[in-house]
Design a protein around this nucleic acid. Structure first.
Lengths: 155, 155
DNA sequence: CTCGGTGCAAAGCTTTTGCATCCGC
DNA sequence: GCGGATGCAAAAGCTTTGCACCGAG
């Protein structure tokens, strides 16, 4: 896996290119948010991100966090998920292989997996239904086997 | 396709059995909501359902609608979806073959499709990752080819 | 200097909750 | 009659919006 600093440089370039193409301003807040996202790991939500940035004494507003997340989703640097709750979850996507998710309905743990057949289905459906599919979301819900998962201790 | 009245009788029986098993009360509101869901077609949200019932002069509260939807999801008579917005969408599930969804990101039209390979992936992942998968959600997002879809008229 | 972006707080929307009342059992 | 269910309204939680100010181009 590439060094984090190198990845941040790469995503910065992509973001700059996107902002220029759309004639949007390159504000320090936008880059700070991008950097924070690529420094942390795993899934997060807008509030997490906002809190963590303020804890690091980087002052941003929630409005800017939401606005920037939207831009990052548009240029494919961040993926947005709606895992069944009314709370959007985000995850960095550059440099990551395509994957889908498995969620424990008891302990809410999120596991990632890859299966190339999903792409095959996508291509076939796309052609069959004359639909230009841009992305997908596949989530399996069930019970995991973690020792500390509630579904093991309760009957 | 079976006659609506017959289906309603069947789902009523299933709901009664569920309520009895869980020792919950068979209130008229619960059955009225179930009937309304199985009388209408397509996808809907809690507010739709609430408004439509009050328009028909059937008085229910939002609290009861939400509560009953949860029960119906638990006994598999209704499926709950989170199609990317912060608004839960529901759909009746009894008598319907398993299917997944294709959503137009421009006009928000929802199309259903079936592909048996999704079940194969589910079984394999379930075994491979030792995860007791109970259900899944597969959604493809893209642009449809409807004549009146915005993505056809705008460049 | 201009006008898009930010920060802040208020508003919006969906969903949940508290509590008095009601009614299935 | 008891205790769960309902109705109503208020509250909660995430996200969006309005507006004054700021700063990138």
């Amino acid at each position: 896996m590439k060094d984090t600093q190198k990845i941040i440089e790469e995503v910065n370039k992509i973001f700059v290119a996107y902002l220029e193409k759309k004639e949007l301003r390159k504000t320090p807040e936008r880059f700070a948010i991008l950097e924070e996202i690529y420094t942390r790991g795993g899934h997060f939500n807008a509030e997490n991100l906002y809190i963590d940035m303020t804890n690091k004494n980087y002052r941003v507003s929630r409005a800017t966090v939401y606005n920037t997340l939207e831009l990052l989703v548009e240029c494919d640097l961040v993926t947005k998920h709606q895992f069944g709750q009314n709370l959007a979850q985000y995850e960095k996507s550059y440099g990551y292989k395509q994957h889908d998710h498995l969620i424990c309905t008891t302990c809410h743990k999120v596991i990632e997996f890859c299966d190339p057949r999903v792409q095959n289905i996508q291509s076939m459906i796309s052609e069959l239904l004359k639909f230009n599919i841009l992305h997908h979301s596949l989530v399996f819900y069930g019970e995991c086997q973690r020792d500390n998962c509630e579904n093991k201790v309760t009957a």
